[in-house]
């Protein structure tokens, strides 16, 4: 008996180390996902929150309603637009900048590494404030610069399609930094001998880029693609702070739709159903990517 007690006491340490973080994660990540799943089948709103007896199970009603909700469909299409244009742009830009930065090691390159990383650590509200001013139709810098080339004022945030593109420009500017660092870390891991061998075979710069560098960046590219895609499917902050989804729901994304249903209209059950649709979409897209990668490796 004494022995068992002693052993438990001796083994308590690992649990003491992991307990604070694991308990917090359980309360604020794992239990919430179960709650979200349950309430997505209910009509929980402010009335239900005040008195639990007002909550009713309505089965799949929320999910059915989503599909016939024009705003939700618009948010799906907008999110598709963001992903299809934004993700390739971010990847191409961050990879190109990483390749340029990897070219040299002088102070200049180190300084520019910081310059390109800066937007990604900039507070989103500060970003909204600055870009709101830059995009301003009358007083903004962008329209002033365009007017120098005698181009008419562009309604950066006032026309649905242009507004979507404006948000993408902003998000690409903000999204380059972190991916560039990942590419840079991968580039620095490529052994010099590979390039020397290619050089001896008489390969020129372009051939080296396509036959040595890019194939060796396969894992980094995959990692960046998966994380960027997941991030852009949850596109939220930019439309939230810049346009609040407008004009005419032209920039509303799925994530913003969920936020608005939940915190502006207090339709908690409906919003939870929306969040599960988003979750499923993310899982499907991620699985497809892993599938594609597998078949890619086989070839």
């Amino acid at each position: 008996m004494n022995d068992v007690f002693r052993r438990t006491l001796r083994n308590r340490h690992p649990y003491m180390f992991i307990a604070p973080a694991v308990i917090l994660l359980t309360i604020f990540s794992i239990i919430p996902i179960l709650i979200a799943f349950v309430i997505s089948f209910t009509n929980l709103d402010l009335k239900g929150l005040a008195d639990w007896s007002n909550i009713e199970f309505i089965g799949l009603e929320n999910y059915k309603e989503l599909l016939s909700d024009d705003v939700f469909v618009t948010s799906l299409l907008n999110t598709g637009f963001y992903v299809v244009i934004g993700v390739p742009l971010v990847i191409i830009c961050s990879l190109s900048i990483a390749l340029l930065l990897n070219y040299g090691t002088s102070m200049l390159f180190k300084i520019f590494r910081s310059v390109y990383y800066m937007p990604s650590i900039t507070n989103i509200i500060a970003v909204a404030v600055i870009w709101g001013y830059l995009y301003n139709t009358e007083y903004g810098l962008f329209n002033y610069l365009l007017s120098l080339m005698s181009i008419e004022n562009i309604p950066w945030l006032e026309e649905p399609t242009i507004a979507k593109i404006s948000l993408i420009i902003l998000a690409v500017w903000k999204g380059i930094g972190i991916n560039m660092i990942i590419f840079l870390a991968a580039l620095q891991g490529i052994p010099r001998s590979y390039y020397e061998a290619a050089e001896m075979d008489g390969a020129n710069r372009v051939q080296m880029l396509f036959n040595v560098t890019l194939p060796l960046l396969r894992y980094a590219t995959f990692f960046v693609t998966v994380t960027t895609l997941i991030g852009w499917m949850q596109f939220f902050e930019e439309p939230f702070v810049m346009t609040d989804g407008g004009p005419l729901d032209g920039t509303i994304s799925i994530a913003l739709f969920i936020y608005k249903e939940g915190f502006q209209y207090s339709e908690f059950g409906y919003a939870a159903a929306g969040s599960f649709v988003l979750f499923m979409l993310i899982i499907v897209v991620t699985l497809v990517q892993f599938k594609l990668r597998k078949s890619d490796v086989e070839h």
């Binding site: 604020f28 919430p32 979200a36 309430i39 799925i254 994530a255 915190f263 939870a272 969040s275 899982i283």
Partner: peptide, 29 residues
Amino acid sequence: FKGREKIFYLVLATMMIPGQVTMIPVYLL
């Protein structure tokens, strides 16, 4: 320790949950 792998995988799994899913329940909690 007992359950190390399982608990660790659970921790990793929470990384995949989008913020929008937990936002409302955390607020309710």
